[in-house]
Computed example of a mutant assay.
Amino acid sequence: MQLEIRPDPAEVGRARRWARSRLVGSGIQADEPLAETLILLVSELVTNAVVHTGRPAVLRLSLPHAVTEEATVRLEVADRSGRAPVPRCADDDATGGRGLALVDGLADRWGWSVESTGKRIWCELDRCSKSPEVAAACGGGAVAYGGGAAVEGLAYEAV
């Protein structure tokens, strides 16, 4: 599943709505922490593509066919800029600059690769069951199950 993104900040909201609509029927409930985290990551990666490249992008979402307690969701944003994503250190008063830090803290895995026409940034979220053994196998889960998360001093609640 993919969505073409225009280089317009209004596309971020459209991308979130599109991603939410893809969850319907996937076995991942809209109020599940995985879904909330996924929507936040969509917002961050699409915002980065729109704001920092000023070029069209493509959002791809890979949901497993059979969602189990240990399923993995993959999110990719491909843009037409060859510039590498660079995490920034934002001070307390900055209104931006935390996107990749959020991705790093919330995703189970993330990375980027050079493409023939630009780059692709991707991240994956593991849907772990609540059993301690599975949670430990999934990396302990940077995402707290319960409506919000804390990541090294950052807190958020998806709305």
Rank of each mutant, 00 (worst) to 15 (best):
L3M: 14
E4F: 12
I5R: 00
P9K: 01
A10D: 08
A10K: 02
E11F: 00
E11R: 09
G13D: 10
A15G: 10
A19W: 10
A19R: 10
S21L: 09
R22Q: 15
S26F: 03
S26R: 06
S26P: 05
Q29S: 11
A30L: 14
L34M: 02
L38Q: 02
I39D: 06
I39T: 10
L40W: 05
V42I: 03
S43E: 12
S43M: 04
A49H: 00
V50T: 11
V51P: 00
V51A: 02
H52Y: 15
H52Q: 10
T53S: 14
T53N: 07
T53Y: 14
R55N: 02
R60G: 12
R60Q: 15
R60V: 03
L61R: 04
L63H: 08
P64V: 11
H65R: 14
T68K: 08
T72A: 13
L75D: 02
E76G: 06
V77I: 01
R80G: 07
S81A: 01
G82V: 08
G82W: 15
G82Y: 14
G82K: 07
R83I: 01
A84W: 05
A84N: 03
P87W: 04
P87G: 06
R88Y: 07
A90D: 07
D93E: 14
A94Y: 08
G96I: 09
G96K: 11
G96W: 13
G97A: 07
L100S: 00
A101P: 01
L102A: 10
V103F: 06
D104T: 13
D104A: 15
G105I: 02
L106P: 00
A107R: 06
W110M: 07
W110Y: 12
S113Q: 13
T117R: 12
G118F: 01
G118S: 00
G118I: 01
K119P: 01
R120E: 12
C123T: 03
E124L: 02
L125Q: 05
L125I: 07
S131I: 08
V134L: 13
A135S: 12
A137R: 15
A142N: 15
V143T: 06
Y145N: 06
Y145T: 10
G146S: 04
G148S: 15
A149H: 10
A150K: 06
V151T: 13
V151H: 08
E152C: 01
G153Q: 02
G153A: 01
A155H: 09
A158Q: 05
V159P: 14
